[in-house]
Amino acid sequence: MSRSGASGSAIGMAFSVPGADASSRTLIDIAEIAFQPATLTAIAGPSGSGKSTLLYLLAGLLAPERGMVVWDGRNIAGEGEGARDRWRRDHAGFIFQNFHLLEELSPLDNVLAPAWFANFSARPWRARASALLDRFGVPREAKRTTFLSRGEQQRVAIARALLFDPRIVFADEPTASLDAAAGEGVIGALAEMAGAGKTVIVVTHDPQLLARAARIIRLDHGRLADREQASAA
């Protein structure tokens, strides 16, 4: 039985970095934004609009200067780095544009990697890791992930993100490094996760992925664009 997604919101959230002079440059300034379970939400916008920064703030990788990031009633923005790490491990999965696998390890060991963060033995997770690889059609017998195609590597990364059956899946440009066919497979997997009830938040430029998103959040200079668009997912 898969865990359902989480409801989340960012309220009065701002984040800035030091500018060239004494002033700071605001990257994110959002009054309120909400996320629902069983929804594939895409974050879109031109380069430099703050898409990835917003994703990192929502995932607790960055702490906002002000405002809240609330997931199921828990404001992770007010917690320390260690607590946010634990929250991410227990509740979130992360998928990257360039997969970021441990190339020297097998696909199975890559999927099992998060298990070592809190357990000495990954044995209890082997069956689930194997099942995830089978589900995404990745050959388990490969000795190293470098022997896999790029599409297969991204599917290993997706399996890794799903090891602990997370309630929320964050993905940063997951199809940008893939050809159309491989990208389609990844989009299908993300849609499947949302269909299974998970909260899926994806930063993307990919029109195919945007077309499959139930909801699109457009950013412009760190702020929400005039209106959100909902596609017919």
Partner: peptide, 16 residues
């Protein structure tokens, strides 16, 4: 450094 950052993003605590 990117590899270690990814571990952190996946939920690895700093002590890990």
């Amino acid at each position: 450094r990117q590899r270690f950052a990814v571990l952190r993003a996946l939920g690895a605590p700093g002590i890990f």
